[in-house]
Every structure is written in C-alpha cells, then in structure tokens.
Design a protein around this nucleic acid. Structure first.
Lengths: 246, 246
DNA sequence: CGAGCGGTTGAGGCATGTCAAGAGTTGTGG
DNA sequence: CCACAACTCTTGACATGCCTCAACCGCTCG
C-alpha cells in the first residue's frame, strides 16, 4: 500500500473515529491491488474474505441469475463495498467488476470482525455505515416497485443534477447501457424513454443531459426524500443521510 | 410490559448476548402496546423515535409514493423492525400497519444508541442484525430485477414449502392480495399466474398450496441460495443466514 | 339481510421486452 | 495509417407480460 493512500481511507466515515493505533493495525494487514478495466474481482457466491475499498477508478456491483444479469450499484471513490458480507462471514450476494482501471484496498474480513470488538468507536461507525447501506437498498427497492421506468429515469436524472449542485446540464457518469440495467430496464427502452422525455423538460445530446424545464421534469418525477434521499428538493418528509450511489 | 414478555425478547439474536443488567436497563425504559387490527402505527417520514418488536400478531411494512402503495415486508413474532432508522435517528422509510391484533414493544431509539456504546456484545449483535437485514433487502432487490412475476411466485411458494420443513402442502401465511403486492404484481395477475402454474407442478385450493410435482416446479423457479436464502435446496453457491420474512 | 371485501375471470390496452438492422465510436493489429 | 472487429446507441417492427377496468361470486360481519 502506498503511504498516500492512508489519509484517504482514514477520512471515510467508517474509519474516521477509531483510534490511530487500531487504524494502523488494520492497515498493516491490508493490501492494495490495481485491477485492469473490466475485471470481475468478486464473484457472487464466493466467501467474503475481504472488505473492499475503491481508491481510484470505479466499480460495478451486479447480480446474475439463470443467465440474466443486472447492475445493482456503482461504486465511486472513495468508498467501501460489500461490508455486510464481510461482517457476516457469508458469501457475496453480488459480483463486482471494474468499469475502468481501479485501485482497490483489501482488508481481511477476520481482522475487521476482530476490530469492532476491540474498538467501540469503530463498532459504532460500522453500525452507522450498515444502517445507511440498508436504507440505501430500501430506497432502491421502493423506486423499483413504486415507479415505472419513465419516472425512474426522470428522477434519476434530476437527482444527478442536484447532486452536481443543481446544474442545468451535465454528462452522464456512466454508459447508458449500464444505467438502463441499474434502473431495471433494457437499453432500447432507456433510449426510447429519454427521447420521450423531450417535451417534458429534458433534452439529451449524446451523454449530455440538459434540463430545459426543471419544473416540468420535477412534476413528472415527483422526487421524494424517502426514495431519492434528503438532498433532493421535494416534498414534506424526512431529513438525513447520503443518497444512493450511481 | 408484562413479565412474561421479557424472556421472549431476551431470546432474540439482538438481545441475547448483552449483559443482564444492560438488558434490564433497556427494558425499563421501554413499554408494550396492544394495537387493533389494521392500525397504521408507523408512518413513513416520521422520526424514528422507537425500535419496534412484534411479540404477538403480525405487521406489514409498506411504502407509499404518489398515491401508489406496495408491501415491502411482513413481520412475524418475535422480531424487531426498522432498526436502521432508529439507529440513524432518521425518518422511517416505510410505514407499518398491523395485519391482526398485535402486541408491540417500543424501545426508545436514544436508549438504543446509548446502549451500543456501552455494551460491546450488544453492538456486535446490532452489527450482525443490520448486516443480515441488508442482505435480506439485497436478495429482495435481486428477485425483483432478475425474475419475472411467474418465477417470483414459483420461488416464493417453493421457499415457503421448504421453510415449513419441505412439506407438500401448506396454507398461505398471508392474504393473496398482500402477497401480490409483496411480489410486485397486481392481485389479478397473481390469481392468473397461480392458475397458470397448474401444469407446472402446482395446485391451489383457496389459500391452500399443493405441490404436485416438486421437480417440475423447481425447474421453473430455479431457486438460488444467493436470492432465496441458504435453506433452499438448489445450486452450488453459498451458506449462512436467515432468509427473508413473509 | 345487505354492505364490504377478497378473490377470480374476461376484455382490452399500454408498457416493456425481443429481435433485427444500421450508424457512430473506439480499440487493435497489420 | 488504414482496415477491421467489437461495441454502444438508436430506431423500427413485433410480441408479450402485466396492468386496468369491470363484472361477478362467495364469504364475513355488522
């Protein structure tokens, strides 16, 4: 591991509050790996021997079943992934592959489990992180069950705009193909939906998103703090924690 | 709270490993309530002031958005629900209503948060519980995105059969209306799907499920340990933790 | 007994997936 | 440097899964 990696990891919520000695202990048993693009570094069903942290590049979490495949999440630096499996010492429920060349830290699960018995602040951090992850997946499930594809697309695009600081125009952070899978639809359907949203306040130019009428698009997407996260302008409810990635 | 409630709560994974003194401290600040059937005791968006435990009866967790509504989970005794919101001191993401008359324990969230800073064993239990909940929702999301409604129904019915001990026949634990919503479909569609599954090894008689050809039904459902939980007979993968409720 | 509700069934429509073809882009190797 | 392969994205035609609306049955409960 490179010395300049450590401060970045230390800044994560998960590791911010533990003692310096314990942090260093955890890091000495860990190591860093550089993966090429498109490499499947985690295969669902394998034992979760390591907690992973993306330092550079980006990672796709996806799931397979009976020949089908779908994107579950996209992980950008700096964040951890598959914490739950590491903790339960259980098989990964999702696979992971690099979307671009990526630098990944691996922390042995057993060290992790030992550590939160020793460091109370760390265990509190783990609890908070897990609770946040849980809520994130619940939001995901809600959007899948309550919204149709058109609404999912519109709310996704709006949310991205808001996370980027309320900008009118931005570039999609991922390929449309991937986005389609994440939103639970086919690439063809996404393509058509994007075209159909012209006239509802949206304009696409390749991977460039242009919000031509935010009010109109918002009326269609009906962003909700209990689905899209507290940062989205919207309705009456809620307050409080980071929204879903991707 | 009734004295006979305590042992039941104590047996939960969440409270099993904490010290007796801490358990008693937590219980003295808690109280029990009896709710009539159909009462919405938690409304999504409200602050999560209490961790809930179902002792008797059953509870439906559901979500609303823009006039639509769907069932997210069914909670049977004895289990906790909405642990994550209590911990994050965040608004509930889901609403809850009683499906029948229910006896519920309420533990103040602030006491809960204070407790896992004091009792290491308890914090480990919370971590394990949250990780299990997280994985449960991920499974749920996987089944929604990877399987069509026919496959969801078939795998649900098979899983119930297996959880009941591999029985050939059993009664649905919930109304079909509710089950449909849980599985992400309309009651009409569920009704038709159940009828269509005759000829694939299934026979319905009202709320009674009869598996006439397990091999055939299994071939259709393709149960997977990484979706349906480790208890289902099936493919190569996985080992390890409780499956989704309902 | 009548109202209300869950369940079923049918008819019809819309949303979404499938299949196929073509344009544009990127990466690679000769 | 070009040719080619591979891939994404788009578009069209078509099939189908699923929903909507409506009617009806049977049951429960006031």
């Amino acid at each position: 591991m490179r010395p300049e990696d450590l401060p970045e990891i230390r800044h994560l919520h998960l590791f911010r509050d533990m003692t310096q000695a314990n942090f260093e202990a955890l890091m000495t048993s860990s190591y860093a790996l550089n993966f090429p693009q498109g490499l499947e570094m985690i295969r669902q069903g394998d034992p979760a021997d390591f907690l992973h942290i993306v330092l550079e590049g980006s990672v796709e979490l996806f799931a397979r079943w009976g020949g089908r495949e779908c994107t579950m999440a996209m992980v950008q630096p700096v964040s951890t992934f598959i914490l739950a499996a590491s903790i339960r010492d259980a098989p990964y429920l999702m696979s992971a592959r690099t979307l671009e060349r990526a630098r990944i830290i691996l922390i042995p699960s057993s060290d992790l489990r030992a550590m939160f018995r020793r460091d109370t602040e760390f265990s509190v951090s783990v609890i908070n992180e897990l609770a946040a992850c849980y809520r994130s997946v619940v939001r995901n499930a809600k959007t899948l069950k309550l919204r149709n594809s058109r609404e999912r697309v519109a709310s996704y695009l709006l949310r991205q705009s808001i996370l980027a600081g309320g900008v009118v125009s931005y570039t999609l952070p991922v390929e449309k193909r991937l986005l389609a899978s994440y939103l639970g639809m086919t690439p063809e359907n996404l393509s058509r939906t994007l075209k159909a949203l012209e006239g509802d306040g949206l304009k696409m130019d390749g991977a460039r998103v242009i919000i031509t009428d935010r009010a109109k698009l918002t009326a269609l997407a009906q962003p909700d703090k209990l689905i899209d996260g507290p940062d989205v302008a919207g309705n009456e409810n809620g307050a409080g924690l980071p929204s879903t990635r991707l």
